[in-house]
Computed example of a mutant assay.
Amino acid sequence: MCPAPGGVDHGRPGGGGVGSSGRRGEADELPEHTDHGRRYPDVAVLNGRRQPVKATVARGTSYLAIDPGPARIRLNTGETALAAIAWPNTVEVAEDKVSGTYLAIAPRLGEPRLIWPADTDLGTTARVALTAWRRKLPN
């Protein structure tokens, strides 16, 4: 499913059964953002009432994806940029588990977020890792 031009799609799930999960975000038709690749998506984890849960969102490599780091890319009409959004469900003793029901994702900070269903078991660490936007994500 593709969002409206300039939108973000949560993409496909990944990593189930290995203690980490994630989504691939897709942004399309963003020709006005000629430096889009220098940015990371703006992401929040939301509960069932679509309110933010307390989670740390950090840029960087995760178990599921290598962060290629920022680089200048140009997106023309119809082209797509990709970013990985991943979270480990690590559980530490005597801590409360954090989970979400939705991801709110925007192409970059300050732009409107789209909300997508995504069961997120953040374990007790409540950490989410993001990669930079790229045309293709490294393996």
Rank of each mutant, 00 (worst) to 15 (best):
P5T: 09
P5D: 12
G6N: 14
G7K: 08
V8P: 05
H10P: 04
P13L: 10
G16Y: 14
G16E: 13
G17M: 11
V18W: 14
S20T: 15
S21G: 15
G22N: 10
R23I: 02
R23D: 03
E29T: 15
E29A: 13
L30F: 10
P31Q: 10
E32N: 11
D35V: 04
D35Y: 07
R38A: 07
R39I: 06
R39F: 12
P41D: 05
D42N: 10
V45E: 00
L46G: 02
N47L: 04
N47A: 06
Q51T: 13
V53E: 01
T56C: 06
T56A: 14
T61G: 01
Y63A: 14
L64I: 05
A65C: 13
D67T: 07
P68W: 08
G69H: 15
L75I: 06
L75G: 07
N76Y: 09
N76C: 10
G78F: 11
A81E: 07
P88N: 14
V91R: 09
V98T: 12
S99A: 10
G100W: 02
G100E: 04
A104R: 03
I105E: 04
R108K: 14
G110F: 07
P112C: 08
R113A: 11
P117A: 08
P117D: 09
P117C: 11
D119E: 12
D119H: 11
T120S: 14
G123W: 07
A129F: 08
A129Q: 11
L130V: 00
A132I: 01
A132F: 00
R135G: 03
P138V: 02
N139R: 11
